[in-house]
Design a protein around this nucleic acid. Structure first.
Lengths: 214, 214, 214, 214
DNA sequence: GATGAATGAGAGTTCATTCAT
DNA sequence: AATGAATGAACTCTCATTCAT
């Protein structure tokens, strides 16, 4: 997931910036990825970004805001890419495939970011978790749209509730990315996409798969 | 999930116990469930358990060990119950069904424990996470055994790799339990088991369509 | 003002103590007297008292509570001594004389304490000032009692309002002690008492004084 | 107390000014009066004055100098007015009356300024306090002059030392103004002047009684 | 075994001041 | 003269852990 100048964090008005906002964000991703949210001192993030401690607070309200900005940026970009990619696909199955591909592609290209979103972002308390939920909502909505379409088209089983479908899809992707990042992100995450999509669509049972292949 | 005297935690030699080990473990589950790992002070756990602060350290090496003991106990009991339950089932599909039922049944009957394992246990650092992996291993092995058998029996698709299958199964269960606990554990978790099993086996695609393709 | 074990500060229950409460209080008076409230670090107070930083928080809720405890103790002792001393005097003029004598005597025997109450205690913000007012109330009430009696006896001029009388008495004593402490507490404060009392009673005018002396 | 362009603060050589010096001084009085010296950030004072943070340092050496400039200005104007007013009075008693009237009149017409000089100015450390003393000296000298004259004229009691007289006068005025400002400056401060003057001259004793003793 | 008073390291955040523009 | 982005020193309070009793 490439990092362009992104308007996350607090509103900075007409600040000189000089790329400091992004530098701090990148430094935070690296430091948090390496040692976790609770062990990532602001002073280390500042040093890594090449700015003074106080400068961090010119661009982010506090440490929590810095963490949320990372997620906002990451999810924002995934959602933006997905919206573009899904617009080019017709049927729901293809769209589901694209969801997995984009999600794996983005996180798979930035292991440090994946480490933060998959692992360290969970290390937060109730209040923060609520805000994380808000940020994730557009992504969930997008997923729900695909499921809706699939059921409407008749390619997704209407007997499977939204709730269950969404949890299987998100749970499987999440677990796959987390396992990948925790084992050192050594293999190509995106390459797993086809297998994951197939299992989401047909499950692990041999029956239909076999018949399909027949 | 009933709590027997469980030999988790550090090795305390010939200890009298008096149920204090369990009292502390239970108190820790309640306190951590209520306010998170990082806000659960040892002094509050001790007070809740009716012992002095120092006494906690007679039964657990440190706070980290206390947290791991909770997971060890929970997973240990799930695995024990599963081993017993699976022994009574013949085919792999039935065994998979039992896995989901037992997992949901256990965590579903102890929301505080579920809160700790699903949410707060994630709030730990790298070193701790490695140990969490070790504790989960027996559970993963058990899951792998079921998958093996299913493939051998021909009911599970041999084209689906172990890795992918295990991640779908665990990821879906995990996401389902987490969503349940984070929304206040208001509905019956165990009641979701049949739907979850069906989606694990057949995915979200419409069977009819697949059969049409046959 | 001698310092006995005084139950100021937070309620400590059945603590071992070992004089730590008083040691910290004394250290705080010395350190604050020397460098002011805002420059008195807890760590320096702790070092001076021979305890660890954290120990301060076993005996006082926070730095503010520590400051208020000093005032509570000082005013508490002044009031206690005054109640005893005034009980032995009959007429209002004698009582007024005792007030000045005790006030000057107490603060005059502990310059560091005087420095804290007269100078540094003023370095606080609105919320704290309100609490300071509450603590001073018993002293003000005592003063009012003397004025009441004087007016009733006919020795104090009923044309002088309570408000004005109290402010003259307290303002004059306060300014005298402050000037004494700020000039290095070199002379005997208590020795000024007779002159101060005379001026409080008869003012600076020569007229009555002259007639009285006539 | 009307505010003329006053040459307080650091020496800025040939400065253009544009009224910024005064604007900053006024802003500082307002901000400090509202939230105290330690809570009055330079950035807030600058914003209130409509200048940039850095501009403050073109007119004042530092925050301390800004605070002292406020006092210098206030006392300077009081002294100037007093010199003028006292020149028109003949006897010492009338002069004392004018001192109280002018002091109460000036501070009574500018509660924010009174708040700063009476309350927040006390929140400073030793070094600063010494300078405050220097600034107050002309005012004290003026007071001493009046006392001298009164003693010489025979209307002030020569048995009352300068030190005691000055402290009573200043302490009483100070306490009166402070109480007025801390209770919200709701009543007319200047109206208290006659009562205060009477008490300064004749004390709180009942004149009749004194005369009886005569 | 049990206690709980004492310890002390550790970090987020503010804000007066500077200086390049 | 004026700006305001950047600096970085400074400090209170918490809490896991220890150990004398």
């Amino acid at each position: 997931m490439s990092i362009h100048s992104f308007a996350g964090g607090m509103d900075i008005g007409a600040r000189r910036d000089n790329g400091k906002h992004n530098a701090i964000l990148q430094a935070a991703i690296q430091v948090i990825a390496g040692s976790g949210y609770h062990n990532a001192q602001i002073s280390r993030i500042a040093r890594e970004a090449g700015v003074a401690d106080g400068t961090v607070y010119l661009y982010f309200k506090n440490k929590e805001d810095l963490l949320l900005s990372i997620l906002r940026k990451a999810i924002g970009e995934v959602v933006a890419q997905l919206e573009e990619a899904l617009a080019r696909e017709r049927d729901a199955a293809s769209k589901l495939r694209r969801v997995v591909e984009v999600y794996f592609g983005d996180l798979g290209s930035d292991p440090a970011l994946a480490m933060v979103t998959q692992v360290h972002l969970r290390q937060v308390d109730a209040e923060l978790r609520r805000q994380v939920g808000d940020i994730m909502k557009p992504f969930y909505n997008l997923l729900d749209g695909v499921i809706d379409q699939g059921v409407y088209e008749g390619v997704f089983n209407r007997a499977v509730s939204h709730r269950v479908a969404r949890r299987m899809i998100f749970g499987t992707m999440d677990e796959t990315v987390t396992a990948w990042v925790l084992t050192g992100s050594k293999y190509d995450l995106a390459a797993l996409a086809p297998d994951i999509v197939r299992v989401l669509l047909y499950g692990i049972s041999a029956r239909e798969q076999v018949e399909e292949e027949a």
